[in-house]
Every structure is written in C-alpha cells, then in structure tokens.
Nucleic acid binder design. Structure first.
Length: 481
RNA sequence: GGCCCCGUCGCCAAGUGGUAAGGCAGAGGUCUGCAACACCUUUAUCAGCAGUUCGAAUCUGCUCGGGGCCUCCA
C-alpha cells in the first residue's frame, strides 16, 4: 500500500495521489519575520522538513515552497519601536530564521519566496477578484466578499451565522460584511507601501500566499501545510482567494501539525512559558530536539518539558552507543557481500510507518528494533570471526543511518556526539573533567595493585557526584549517570 | 455559545473491528573483580457507563476530564 495522508479538508486519511504522477508540489506557510522563532515554529518546520524528505525518499520529485512574510502589522510596529525600517527588521529576522533552521538540521526548501517580491502578482490577483465580483475596493482598501464564495468555511467546518456573531469590524475598516477580510490595505503615513490601482498600500496577510503559491507551483498543487492555528482564517481565506481568482481547485491535501505545549499549557507570551529556538539550543542538542519532536505523530499535541527532552536524549543516546559499538566491532573487516535481510526488514517497516500519514513515532520504534538486533548480533561470541554476522551488522547499521537521514537524525559522528552531550551535561555538575580523569588515574593505580576496595571507593565517590565509570578493554571511560 | 481534537502501563508514545508496538524508568537474570553498556525475562484490557457486533482500545450515544480554534499566532 502506498502513502496515505490525513487531509484536514475531508477529516480523513486519504490515499496520496499527486496530480501529476511522480511529482509533488508542496507549499508550507512560513513565518512572519519580526521576532525569533520559538519551539512551535521548530516543530512545524521540522515536521514539514521530514515530509519533504520522505516524499523525495519515496521517489517523488518534490517542489517545496516555504515563504517569509516580510510585510505585516507586527513587523511595522516592531520596526517603529526600534526606529529601523521594516525592511531592516525583516532582513534581521530572516537571517535569524535561517540560522535557527540550519542549526536544527533542516534542508532548504526548493524556493523561499518573500511576500514583498510578489507585489505585482498580489495586485493582479486583487484585480481579478474585483473583476469577478469576489472583491471590492473601499476607500483605499480592497476586501474579499466572503458571501460570494460558496465553499467558504469548508476547511475549518464553521458556519457563517455563528462566525458573524463574534466578528468585529476594526476601526477604520470599510467592510460590507464583518466577515470580509482585507486583500489590500491602504497605506497610512510612515508605512511601507507599493503603488496599486487603489492607491498606495500593502498586501493583507492571506493574499501573499495565494500569490506565491500560484507563481511557483501553479493554480493547483498537491500539498499545503502549516500549523493547526492557520486553518482559520489564513488557509480558509487562501482557498477563497485562489479558487475565486483561478476558478480551479486550489489544494488537494491540507496537512496541519499540532501544537507544542509547555508543561501541559499552551505556550504563550502572556504565560511567560515562551521558548525561542536559540534559548533551547543553549541547553539541548539540536538533534535531541528533533528526536523529541519526531517521537510523536505530527498531528498530536506535544509537551515540551525537561523530562521529555531528557528522555529524548536517552533514546538518541541508545542509537549513538549502538552505532559506536557496531563501528568498533566491524572495523577493519573485509567483506565482499552484505547480507540485506535484517536491514530490508527494518526498511520495509519504516516505509510502512511513514506511509501511514508520516508516523515518525512508529518509524523510530522500528529503528529501535533494528538497534536491538544489531546489539544482539554484536554480542554473539566470536562475532568478528563470523563474517555473516558482520555482514548483517554492517547492513543494519547502514540502513538505520540511511533511514535516519529521512528523519534528519543520526547525522553526527557517534563518538563526537556522545562526547558533546557528556560535556554539556557535565556543566550542570560540580565536577570538572580534569578531576574525573585524575580520580580515574588514582583508581587505576589502586587496581593495578589489586586494591579493589580503594578502586570501588573511588567509583562510589564519583557515582555520588553523578559520574559513572566504565571499564573497557581500552581503559576506563566515564559518562553521566 | 459554536466548531474541532484528545483521554492507552509510573512517564513518553504506536495501535482506528480480530484479541494491547517501541522508548524511558522499575524488577529479576547473563556478562563484569565490582560497576556500566549490551542481551534475556518481566509489568496495562485501553477515563467511565450503555449500546452495535460472533468479536471493540478501535463504531454509536451519554457522562466525566483535558486541550484547541472562533482576534495575531506554527
């Protein structure tokens, strides 16, 4: 069975059949660049990064578009507060966004358009919508006439009467209907603006996505993604604009990721439980964050907490330790053929999980199974002499790494990663690496004189301070407890 | 008030009609001078109630609990 995806429009999982066989067009709403990104942005972007990677892995030639919203009220306000131009502010946070996403190991989308690069297209769409009666100009603004679009609210499954009860007209807006939304906003003094048939102004929030997606992917395309919170009004309005203007079906599959909660509560600035990606990266390894996010299905809410991150780190460490030992165990052995059996099993399971609406949690579980198999084989007596076992392990190892690549995981050198995490953890303890090494040396002395009592004393002392000693053939190593 | 989602082992988390994956933590064991890693074994009837069905965590209804959207928001 092939890929199945949960479509917000139908509320069900559907068989994924791109409009053009073998090719996929995907648009994901990016960020408004007025501040640093938070863990919620990290989730959305990681999720769609994995979806993009998996589509390609599955053989689809995929065009992935993710925009920057670089003109908006929030940007204007923030720029004014800081006494810089909107453009400067936007540039600053576009750079910050790119840095954050690179740090999290995301691949770059095919296109990363900016709203301000598509003003002509935006004006064009506004004009078409006016010509077709879907929109009207009103004292310098242009509004969408939602009554005209029959399928309005189909995505968010709301009804117009109830919505209207809560809708308000903001001061200065000249709408026919409170539900109508702005396509073009007349410029107020000091705001960035562009020329248009309705006077100088700037685009409304939703229209830019219609303009960028149609320019880069066409009027109709396969996947449109974003956070759940974008379903209404953003995506609903995009549909109204794009289908109103083109007269064609806009998007085939609507995918929406769930939220990140913090300690069971919604993350919000007012609650003060707001974490930026940069803050988090000071405490946690980027791959741990990725592992944490992918350990849940993308539509479920996920709870960001120290305990959950610590667990993610333990889980990821299991992988890296297995890679390290597999590498060591198979090092320097010449093999002609690889045994593909175990690796193929893991790969089939992985595919099956990912085909079911990108179930990364289940996919990772199958990779854990692969790790166990690998560890089991390596532990067999005289492993290095049994080339068929070595072949199995090599293949499993390579397979897990290759599949991990789809999730953006296991990209570090095992020893380096383990060392990095270890040293980061050490910062929280009241002991230095030098002290530990020194004590290990003392213990070695004691043990070489068969003074095991003193040796155990040192082990106990270190353990009390959060350090575990590991005796290996090559000598004594340590790790955090 | 309207609409939507969720409630699975101590914690995280799969499973959407055929008899409960995986990880973390815990217990016992093998290995180890000791320990750690690894490996083996072990721990749930699925919020509650009532239905549909030969059979339900999976479908329906109700109750309880949690969350989201309806204003900007990933």
């Amino acid at each position: 069975m092939g890929l199945r995806v949960y479509n917000t429009m139908s509320g069900k999982k559907e068989e994924f059949q791109p409009r053009v066989p073998g090719k996929v067009g995907m648009y994901v709403c990016g960020v408004t660049v007025y501040d640093y990104c938070h863990i919620g942005h990290a989730r959305a972007n990681i999720v769609f990064d994995v979806i993009y990677r998996y589509l390609q892995f599955s053989g689809y030639e995929t065009t992935y578009v993710r925009n920057y919203t670089d003109v908006d009220d929030k940007i204007i306000n923030r720029a004014n507060e800081r006494g810089i131009s909107s453009k400067e502010l936007a540039e600053e946070f576009i750079t910050a966004f790119d840095e954050d996403m690179d740090a999290l190991g995301l691949v770059r989308p095919t296109h990363e358009p900016r709203a301000t690069e598509y003003i002509d297209k935006i004006v064009e769409i506004c004009q078409i919508l006016i010509d077709k009666g879907f929109a009207y100009a009103s004292s310098g603004d242009v509004y969408y006439r939602v009554d005209k679009f029959d399928n309005y609210l189909q995505l968010s499954k709301r009804n117009m009467e109830e919505m209207q009860a809560g809708a308000r007209i903001a001061p200065g807006e000249q709408k026919e209907n409170p539900m109508d939304f702005a396509l073009w906003k007349g410029a107020k003094p000091g705001e960035p603006s562009w020329e248009s048939p309705w006077g100088d102004g700037r685009p409304g929030w939703h229209i830019e996505c219609s303009a960028m997606s149609s320019s880069l992917l066409g009027d109709s395309f396969d996947i449109h993604g974003g956070g759940r919170d974008l379903i209404f009004p953003h995506h609903e309005n995009e549909i109204a604009q794009s289908e109103g203007a083109s007269g064609k079906p806009f998007v085939k599959y609507w995918l929406h990721n769930g939220f990140v909660n913090v300690d069971q509560e919604k993350m919000s600035k007012s609650l003060g439980n707001f974490f930026t990606i940069r803050d988090i990266l000071n405490t946690y390894d980027a791959e741990v964050i990725r592992f944490f996010i992918l350990s849940a299905q993308y539509r479920s809410p996920i709870d960001f907490s120290d305990q959950n991150l610590a667990e993610a780190q333990s889980g990821l460490r299991r992988f890296y330790e297995a890679f390290e030992s597999a590498e060591a165990a198979t090092e320097g052995i010449d093999l002609r053929d690889l045994d593909r059996e175990e690796g193929a099993k893991v790969e089939a399971k992985f595919h099956e999980a990912m085909d079911d609406d990108f179930n990364t949690a289940l996919a990772i579980a199958h990779l854990f199974d692969g790790v166990r198999t690998m560890n089991r084989l390596v532990a067999i007596k005289k492993f290095r002499k049994k080339t068929e076992l070595v072949a199995q392990v090599r293949d499993l190892h390579a397979t897990i790494l290759r599949l991990g690549e789809v999730l953006g995981l296991y990209r570090s050198q095992p020893t380096e990663w383990l060392e990095k995490v270890k040293l980061a953890g050490l910062k929280k303890l009241e002991i230095t690496g030098e002290e530990i090494v020194d004590l290990i040396e003392q213990r070695l002395q004691a043990r070489s004189g068969k003074d095991f009592a003193r040796g155990d004393e040192i082990r106990g002392e270190l353990e009390a301070r959060g350090i575990l000693l590991l005796d290996t053939r090559e000598g004594t190593n340590w790790r955090l407890k």
